[in-house]
Design a protein around this nucleic acid. Sequence first.
DNA 1: ATTTATGTTTGAATAAAGTTCATTTTCTGA
DNA 2: TCAGAAAATGAACTTTATTCAAACATAAAT
Lengths: 251, 251
Amino acid sequence: MGTKERRQREFEARERLFLDAARKLIRQEGILALQMARLARACDYATGTLYQHFSAKEDLLVALATRRLEEHADYFCQAAAWKAGTRERMFALTVADYNYAQRHPGFSRLLQYAFTEVIWEGASEERRQAMQSALQPPARAVRAIVQDAIEAGDLPDRGLDAGALMLGPWGLSAGIQSMMQTHGLLDGLGIREPGLQLYRHAQFLLNGLGWKPLMDPVDETALAALVQRIEQDVLATDQSKAGPAGNRINP
Amino acid sequence: MGTKERRQREFEARERLFLDAARKLIRQEGILALQMARLARACDYATGTLYQHFSAKEDLLVALATRRLEEHADYFCQAAAWKAGTRERMFALTVADYNYAQRHPGFSRLLQYAFTEVIWEGASEERRQAMQSALQPPARAVRAIVQDAIEAGDLPDRGLDAGALMLGPWGLSAGIQSMMQTHGLLDGLGIREPGLQLYRHAQFLLNGLGWKPLMDPVDETALAALVQRIEQDVLATDQSKAGPAGNRINP
DNA sequence: ATTTATGTTTGAATAAAGTTCATTTTCTGA
DNA sequence: TCAGAAAATGAACTTTATTCAAACATAAAT
């Protein structure tokens, strides 16, 4: 009785088809221009079929964001698994995150939008759950680094929870990148080279946490060298896409 | 020939009326439920009149976010002008920001939404400009603190721009608060008491910047006392609204 | 093989809002 | 008082998300 399972497989394949097509359409014309009927047509299905998969447009957007996060997570976990000191690994996460966002600007915008109340609450509980699940692996990776760091004596054990510790670097990265998304915002405030500043503040924060070995974030040369090393050592999986801007701090 | 100016005044008054009514409607039923026609009706104007003020719904949302930011900015600048050490003043900004967001959850959600690509790009250039202008006073206030700190020797002068320096604390605060907005997200990751963690990481970052006097963010009692002192000394303008939750770190 | 039952797909119809614009009303300055 | 300009109006228009009754396909039973 493999019929049911085959059905299930086909259903999942079609969902991937829809999500891939949605991604393509969004890339071409932006999130705003995505229309459910057009998406269905583009996949040679009726509108109603699309709604068999997604309870609403918001649901589809969260599903797409989740899917893309899963890809990003692989990339991210690679950085976490790097054979290097705990501090370098922690910083590599920031680099991986920022690097990916730079190369896939649509992804960051989608994620930002998906986490908005209007979209998030408009998605089904299952989708939100799926997003939570997709966040678990990277979260575990970060926790692992924090644990390692404490055990190795790189990070003073103050009895703080690993989750609490990772919130800082993650929040910092998310916050600055979110501002960078908003066109003209940082420029209007006279803040230049936000990518460089993100890296610097990530290092300042690690210094503040007492995460050894301490580093001087103002030494731009050393910082750039470190970033480049991380990009070459760790994030070289898809160099094809990286292009010449791949190792610049602030393209 | 004061006719024209009177007209102008009346026009601006009506715009305020629309924005106040929009705020009320959003408070009652959420951003998603805001309808242009209903808003106009609620103010006893025709739909078309509303469009005399706002080029689109997105335009209205950015205008509303800007208006509310201006209110928040006053509150914020108060914290910056506090008579205290530069580090305490800097931290007071985080407290003011978070405190305001806690008391006005709708504001944070609106701001988050407004800075989304879909909304931001849907607003008119003038509205975006107005938002930029509204951001100038708080930005200047932060810059001033940074300058003072460098001059007073509290913060090492590394030749970094004040704008670049403020990006860290601001981004950290914005990022963590943004995550807190997304219902169930941090809980699902096992991160408890995000408000407390925000304060801690803000202090860790200031420590990392070498901003004296250094503080131990793990000492919860001292941190809570500092927060409470800031709330009482600086942010007591509208105690009426503060209520019993006003001085808790993580209500 | 035929029938029944169950599940799936369809796409036209519906409904909900955002936006426009021809018409009406109000206001202004002479 | 009135011509002309400016502003306000709200029904009509447009666009889209969403639904659902009918058609279709598939699996199980006889």
